[in-house]
């Protein structure tokens, strides 16, 4: 809808507003159809002091278009066309990012398959026979958990700012499998499965403690008595986060040292002699774990167990 053949000459103020409103509606309806303003025409601003009223509907439309663009620019902080381009670019980047995350998640899924199989093996050992329908349910739940854990880890890794080390695939998988198994087994069987999981967690903590002491021994030449004392002290004051020692697989060397387990300093230093303390402090300054941050607990080697038909094809 475009006003045609009219001018604003001789119109009252009210008439001019009506005419401008009609013009605005017309511009909104057919904003892309408006002819380009001749390059020579000076820009006209609505409400500019001393600005002449538009002489033609085209000029009025131009005036309105310009006013709308000005208003948009004020709101958006940039020309509308630029904002639109930026939005499209952002959407394209987001789509690209989503694709990358999905691709990475697929890789993580493969990495986690052996973990699922070994967890199911543990269920089979601890819980004994399970009805066919229950087996299917547990398997489906396990696969979904792997998918979700992989997606979570991939998103954390690819999107930045989120720590992939916070994803604990073992714990996440066990939680889901235990919940899926629970309705189908007697309480004592479920308790046996939970005990096995607990024993596995304790084994991991014990190995982490032993690795801390082994690392100290390598750097500080501990005596047998010192090794025992530090192990005992680590055990009595154990913090779950110290399991991070398992992340150090020996490859990381900082300033010619392996990362020092300084997070457990208060359990270590009292057992060192003076010379060892001085070496310890120098080591912490050069390669303290606190300063290095935590890495992901994603070390799964090898293909693991073959697929179990008992679960796969009940």
């Amino acid at each position: 809808m475009r006003p045609t053949g009219a001018t604003t000459a001789g119109m009252s103020g009210r008439g001019r507003v009506q005419w401008l409103t009609v013009g605005l509606l017309g511009w909104m309806a057919a904003v892309h159809g408006v002819e380009e303003r001749p390059p020579s025409a000076p820009p006209v601003r609505l409400g500019q002091p001393g600005a002449a009223a538009p002489e033609t509907p085209e000029a009025a439309l131009e005036l309105l278009r310009q006013a709308a663009e000005d208003a948009l620019q004020t709101v958006l902080g940039a020309p509308a066309a630029d904002v639109l381009a930026q939005r499209q670019q952002r959407k394209a980047l987001e789509a690209q990012q989503r694709e990358l995350v999905q691709r990475q998640a697929k890789q993580f899924e493969q990495l986690l398959q052996p973990l699922l199989r070994s967890e199911l093996e543990l269920v089979r050992h601890a819980c004994g026979d399970l009805p066919e329908a229950a087996r299917h349910e547990v398997l489906v739940a396990g696969r979904a958990a792997i998918e979700s854990l992989a997606e979570d880890a991939a998103a954390r890794q690819m999107n930045g700012g989120m720590n992939v080390a916070e994803v604990d695939p073992r714990a996440g998988l066990h939680r889901v499998i235990a919940a899926a198994v629970a309705p189908h087994v007697p309480a004592d069987r479920l308790a046996a499965y939970r005990r096995e999981d607990q024993a596995r967690l304790e084994r991991r903590a014990a190995v982490a403690r032993q690795r801390i002491v082994a690392k100290l021994d390598e750097q500080l030449e501990l005596s047998a008595t010192q090794r025992e004392a530090i192990l005992a002290d680590l055990r009595s004051g154990w913090q779950p986060s110290w399991i991070r020692e398992l992340d150090d697989r020996g490859g990381l060397v900082v300033n010619n040292h392996p990362p020092a387990p300084d997070y457990a300093e208060e359990r270590i230093v009292p057992h060192l002699d003076e010379t060892q303390r001085s070496v310890w402090h120098a080591w912490c300054r050069a390669a303290g774990s606190r300063m290095l941050g935590q890495r992901a607990r994603w070390h799964f080697d090898g293909p693991g167990l073959p697929p179990d038909p008992w679960w796969e094809h009940p």
Binding site: P114, S118, L120, E121, R195, R200, D301, G304, L305
Partner: peptide, 8 residues
């Protein structure tokens, strides 16, 4: 443990 799923 991870690869084979050993019990205690």
């Amino acid at each position: 443990d991870d690869a084979v799923g050993l019990d205690a």
